[in-house]
Design a protein around this nucleic acid. Structure first.
Lengths: 112, 112
DNA sequence: CAGTTTTTATTAAAAAAATTTAAAAAGATG
DNA sequence: CATCTTTTTAAATTTTTTTAATAAAAACTG
């Protein structure tokens, strides 16, 4: 039976795909996420997350046209599926709930 | 150099520790998280996440007293460190940002 | 009341899945 | 063909899950 869980990194990649829309292809996703995380990522890490998520039905892909610029190899464009979006929202809700269950003092005062 | 990243499941466990405060010990964390995720978890999965996070400095632990009730073995009580709390907040912020970057239409209309 | 069972709990070890890293390959342009 | 943009592949590492073992206390039982 196919695993259906979404990992930490996968979630960030999936959110980025949703944000980028028609520009959601490997290299661009990498750029976008790097700028948000303020941290270098490798191409392969993005690509393997994308592949896993496509297998699990969180997103789909199709090749776009090659652009007329140097090195303009055709891109594989990704898009979230409704299942992917549903899972993203579920995870958001669970975290929101957990956050709201945390006593404020715990975060404001504690020293350690 | 010690890894410093927080996994998906680890994050949920860490949030639960923050929420439970003085009641944050293995079995109780399991109960709480199961009820929130509406899904069965194994004790081992919680415990190994706790151990990893203690190694990475996201939380600390100490044994509590044995309670005077049946099977009341002493508990190992966990607490978040300020580093752990900081990382939790960073992750929350990154996701919040990503969510706000997603065009609303993407989530409201799309069919696939 | 000594031994067994039950309950609450942690610990450990191995298998499975996700992530990272490091190259290699594909396809396009000048 | 040298170079650029992009995807693909493969191996190493880390995280997650599963399964089982161990530990300590209370309750039961003959």
């Amino acid at each position: 039976m196919k695993k259906t869980k979404l990992g930490e990194f996968e979630e960030l990649v999936l959110l980025t795909v949703a944000a980028l829309q028609q520009d959601a292809y490997g290299v661009e996703i990498k750029r976008e996420l790097e700028s948000r995380l303020k941290e270098k990522l490798s191409v392969g890490s993005i690509q393997s997350a994308l592949k896993r998520m496509e297998d699990k039905g969180f997103l789909t892909s199709q090749f776009g046209e090659a652009t007329a610029k140097r090195g303009g190899k055709r891109k594989r464009i990704y898009a979230t599926t409704s299942h992917g979006r549903k899972v993203l929202e579920e995870m958001k809700d669970i975290r929101t709930q957990l956050w709201s269950a945390i006593p404020k003092l715990a975060f404001e005062l504690k020293a350690i």
